[in-house]
Amino acid sequence: MSSTPDTAQAFAKHAASIARRAGVVLLEAREDAKAQGVSGRALGALGDARAQEAIASWLADEAPGDAVLSEEAKDTAARLDAERVWIIDPLDGTREYSEGRDDWAVHVAVWEAGELIAGAVAIPGEDLVLDSASITPPSAAAPEQWRMAVSRSRPPALVEHLRDSLDLAVVPMGSAGVKVSSVIRGQADAYVHAGGQYEWDSAAPVAVARAAGLHTSRIDGTPLTYNRRDPYLPDLVVCRPELASPLLAAIAQAPSFGDHQ
């Protein structure tokens, strides 16, 4: 049976609490590591480990019996039969984190009865947490030119096609959660990814985006589904509803992406 709205709100607030606390752990770990001369990949690995350890401990105490799917933990088939699954990315944007930037995130989502029922995205560098219980839609006012959030380091080839086809302004930024959050916050109007991701990369941002009334789908327009046996979920579209049809049409016309599965 699906959760009631009140239950979903409670899980969203719980997810937000965990994401915020993990952000504090990550910021403190980075400061300590810098003082000890730790940097680069070692710093990223340290952050991943510290956040995973903290979140796993909190969930064991606060959500006993629930299954967990996390980027930084061994996956088990037991989650496929679980009533509820927490889908976690303890540190989304390890590269940005290790470089001392602010555009990285913590993802905490809750799946139940076949659906995402709650999610939270923390952007600790901005002391910000977005959650599916309290999020509001972005402004209805359309910009003079639609803006698309893209990777600052490795934008997929599809981005160039969409930029030219729809005359989009591209806005480079860090992690996937930050890019989806930019659409939720009205800083961008779309985020399209086709370069390979897993469920933990998008579950929490998608839960918040849906609560904000945004369009979310695969790049072929089919629904994003979670807690599948194979957590590989390589592509997604998150955008303002009025931009969904032209975006999906342009994607379908892209030579290398129209048949993407």
Rank of each mutant, 00 (worst) to 15 (best):
K13S: 10
K13L: 14
Y198C: 06
N227Q: 05
E62M: 05
V159Y: 01
P172G: 04
D230N: 15
A45R: 15
D201Y: 10
P155T: 10
S3R: 02
R79L: 11
A207I: 12
A109R: 03
I251Y: 05
Q145F: 00
S245I: 07
A105C: 15
P64M: 02
S181D: 03
A29N: 11
E160K: 15
E31I: 08
V192Y: 04
R30W: 00
H193D: 08
E126A: 04
G40A: 13
A194G: 15
E62V: 00
L158M: 08
V106Y: 00
A77N: 05
G100R: 02
D89G: 09
V108H: 07
Y191L: 15
V183M: 04
E83V: 07
A211W: 02
K74F: 04
D89H: 06
D102W: 10
G174N: 07
L27Y: 02
T94E: 08
R218T: 01
V110P: 00
E53L: 08
A63L: 10
A204L: 11
L168S: 09
V85M: 10
A207N: 06
K179R: 15
S39L: 04
A133Y: 00
P5W: 02
W104R: 14
K34V: 01
T136N: 03
H193K: 05
A254Y: 06
A45Y: 00
A51W: 01
A203M: 07
V170G: 03
G213S: 10
A29H: 09
P5F: 02
A207E: 03
S151D: 10
W86P: 11
H14S: 06
P137H: 03
R163M: 06
V171E: 01
E62S: 09
D259A: 13
V183I: 05
I251P: 01
E62G: 01
A54H: 14
L236D: 01
R30E: 09
L247F: 05
Q261W: 03
A33K: 12
F257A: 05
T7F: 00
R210K: 08
A42H: 10
S39F: 12
V68N: 03
L116V: 09
E72C: 01
A10Q: 11
P231Q: 04
A22N: 12
H193R: 11
V85L: 10
L91R: 11
H14D: 05
L162Y: 05
P143W: 08
V192W: 01
R240V: 02
D164G: 08
A15I: 14
A16K: 04
W146R: 15
A113Q: 08
A22T: 13
R30S: 13
P223L: 04
D164W: 07
A78K: 06
A60K: 13
T4C: 08
P143G: 09
A141S: 11
A203G: 14
R229E: 14
E112Y: 04
H14F: 14
G221C: 07
I135F: 01
R147F: 00
A56V: 07
A60P: 07
L27T: 14
A54I: 00
A157W: 03
R50F: 00
